[in-house]
Write a protein that binds this DNA or RNA. Structure first.
Length: 678
DNA sequence: TTAGGGTTAG
């Protein structure tokens, strides 16, 4: 290339097109030799060009050589660092600029505020904002949207709103920043309201706004909103790039519409890792653990490397089905290939705990130097489901000195106390939550407390707690009360709870079955029959109870009375032999748990076919003596099976862990970790 | 116009 005859004016477009550092250096050398170097504009351009190709060393060397640096040179270097993702350097250069009394302009402030956002450095950001006001840039939309984003990303939506309301001019980016800010802070409703206000003010949403609204739809589980956004995108012919399609997959998946999500996914021509992860997480979060894991394998077969999000979703799937072997192998993969972060560590803690290995969970937890809120909440919840209420409480005591507990912390704590029957502690911490931490109890908190009281037999107090609720009590609290009444045979309060549940017209069949079973236990056969009729009439059937056990890395699931299994005869034979031994040891079948009006011997036979027993027997037959078994059950484990498992643990000298929908039962030497309190 | 808002996860 001949540079000889070029003027500074002609150099600029040439520099703009440069993709290689060497070429820029050549132009740079030419400028020095031909005396054009002192031309300020072109120097800034040169710095910027070095920045664009990532050669920050050359950019900075050049910057250092400038004798009199004007704001455009400063901007060129600060933007170069910003674009190459060096936020700390951006802030340093900004500081240097202020020190040298160079007046920043709109670009400087914008970039500096963005750096503070990335660093989550609210203090520095606010200091910069003071300068913005001092130099009269507070009405600049670029600077304005940057400060909105700073507040939004630091979780200070109230401050963002205050500035937003005072803005004299708002462009689409300002609106979007607020909308996505609300979405990220879990306020999907506010995001939608703001979008509607934006429309009223004559603004038209672009692709970024639509992405935000799709997240809001997932956030507030509003599929109508999501599909109308989808329609809007099509009508306005907004570009359907892979990001947009990924968000659609994510939105439909999060709304439980997995067929639609999968259909869109299959039609995407060039999926990326995020697209895969979005669908994997959709499956995992909706309880389709096996589909999630299959998809993880499929993506790898097609040459994609799973990212952290995919692995975390896969771990969630492993937790769900209690697949320790797969969970461990993901842990191994992660340890070799991925940088361990807070989110991943927490997912691993959760996986080990849900697969029965609470001590592995604890070991991982102990290795984390800085624990965030969710990490603390997770370990407390883990001890809770294992029935270690005291340990959960002790962790909570440590936590509250280090970090502010939130509503989820108290939900985990109350649930832990409830599983361990720590009634007095439960009463105390519920009060502390309300009066000291000023957390308004949610349905979940009430449900835990009602559960705690009712399970301990304090059904009157539980009933009064429900009556004291400010909001209308939902299904969860009445169900908790009903379960307690069922357990303690408090049929009159129970009947009240059952009636309330029926008034609320539960969509969940499990809940109706619970009510029917309660009426049966109370020998209110007419009412029980009426509820069963209701179940049939509305076309609802009982969710089949099943139990699963992992043997040699494969998951085997059993339904109740599963005669189709190839080893059925052997399984029944083993159960029969063990039953004789158990009877000799003093076992009496608890036929109360068969909640139908049947003959006693038929009831006993029905108990024997409970799915957890089939899974246990299968596990015993197919693993080496002494192997610990983990059984996962999708419903609650029944009282008779609980008793039987205790005996089995003695007869076969094995640890047997049963994880039901609520919690763990760890059987060893005839004792259950739950102390028979569940 | 060199600058601001965007996809998956515990």
């Amino acid at each position: 290339m001949r540079l000889k005859n070029l003027s500074p004016h002609e150099l600029k477009p040439l520099l703009l097109g440069c993709k290689h550092s060497a070429l820029i250096s050549q132009i740079h050398a030419f400028m020095v030799s031909s005396g054009l170097f002192s031309h300020g504009n072109t120097i800034a351009q040169l710095i910027s060009s070095y920045g664009k190709v990532g050669d920050l060393e050359s950019a900075h060397k050049l910057f250092d050589k400038i004798p009199l640096r004007r704001v455009d040179s400063w901007n060129a270097i600060i933007i170069a660092y910003s674009n190459n993702e060096f936020p700390v350097e951006v802030v340093n250069i900004y500081n240097q600029m202020v020190l040298e009394r160079v007046k920043p302009d709109s670009s400087t402030f914008t970039v500096a505020l963005k750096a503070c956002t990335i660093l989550q450095d609210l203090e520095k950001g606010e200091e910069i904002w003071k300068k913005v006001v001092e130099f009269g840039y507070e009405n600049d939309v670029f600077v304005g949207s940057s400060v909105l984003n700073l507040y939004a990303k630091c979780g200070k939506m109230d401050k963002a709103e205050a500035i937003f309301e005072k803005m004299q001019r708002r462009d689409i980016v300002c609106w979007t920043t607020m909308i996505t800010g609300f979405v990220h802070s879990g306020k999907g409703r506010e995001a939608v309201d703001l979008y509607q206000r934006m429309q009223r003010e004559g603004m038209v949403g672009d692709s970024v706004v639509m992405l935000g609204l799709m997240q809001a739809s997932a956030n507030i589980a509003d599929i109508k909103l999501g599909s109308s956004v989808h329609g809007h995108i099509i009508r306005r012919a907004l570009p359907m790039d892979v990001n947009m399609l990924t968000s659609l997959v994510d939105m439909y998946a999060k709304n439980g519409q997995l067929e639609i999500a999968t259909r869109i996914f299959r039609e995407i021509p060039c999926r990326n890792t995020v697209t895969w992860s979005a669908l994997i997480s959709g499956y995992a979060q909706n309880g389709f653990a096996v589909n999630a894991l299959e998809l993880l394998i499929e993506m790898q077969l097609l040459g994609f490397t799973p990212d952290v999000a995919a692995l975390i979703s896969a771990l969630l799937a492993c937790s769900d089905i209690g697949s320790l072997r797969l969970g461990r192998s993901i842990h191994g993969y992660v340890a070799r290939k991925v940088i361990m972060d807070q989110v991943l560590s927490t997912a691993l803690i959760d996986m080990y705990a849900k697969c029965g290995l609470i001590y592995c969970a604890r070991a991982l937890y102990d290795r984390i130097s800085f624990k965030d809120l969710i990490c603390w909440n997770t370990i407390i919840a883990c001890y809770g489901i294992h029935g270690h209420g005291r340990e959960a409480l002790s962790l909570f005591q440590q936590m509250k000195n280090k970090i502010e507990p939130d509503h989820a912390t108290f939900a985990a704590l109350l649930s832990a106390l409830s599983h361990s029957g720590l009634v007095e502690e439960g009463r105390h911490w519920f009060d502390v939550m309300v009066n000291e931490y000023k957390i308004k109890p949610s349905e979940k908190h009430y449900a835990c407390s009602v559960d705690l009281l009712a399970r301990a037999g304090e059904v009157e107090e539980a009933k009064d707690l429900i009556i004291s609720m400010e909001t209308k009590p939902g299904l969860a609290v009445w169900v908790a009360l009903l379960s307690g009444c069922h357990k303690h045979k408090k049929f009159s309060v129970g009947e009240l709870a059952a009636n309330r549940i029926l008034e609320l017209i539960p969509e969940n069949t499990g809940t109706l079955v619970l009510v029917a079973n309660f009426f049966a236990a109370a020998k209110m056969w007419d009412k029980a029959a009426a509820v069963r009729k209701l179940l049939k009439k509305t076309g609802m059937t009982k969710v089949p109870g099943y139990s699963a056990v992992e043997v040699n890395g494969r998951l085997h699931a059993f339904l109740m009375d599963d005669t189709s299994h190839p080893q059925y005869e052997q399984i029944m034979g083993l159960l029969g032999n063990m039953e004789n031994e158990m009877k000799a040891m003093g076992y009496v079948p608890k036929t109360d748990f068969v909640l139908q009006n049947l003959e006693e011997d038929v009831k006993v036979k029905m108990l024997c076919n409970h799915s957890e027993r089939l899974a246990i027997a299968f596990g015993l037959l197919n693993t080496a003596p002494g192997t610990r078994l983990l059984i996962t059950k999708n419903l609650r484990v029944c009282g008779d099976c609980h008793e039987v498992t205790k005996f089995i643990s003695v007869i076969v000298k094995r640890e047997i862990i049963v994880r039901d929908v609520k919690r763990f039962h760890h059987f060893k030497d005839g004792i259950c970790s739950c102390g028979d309190y569940w």
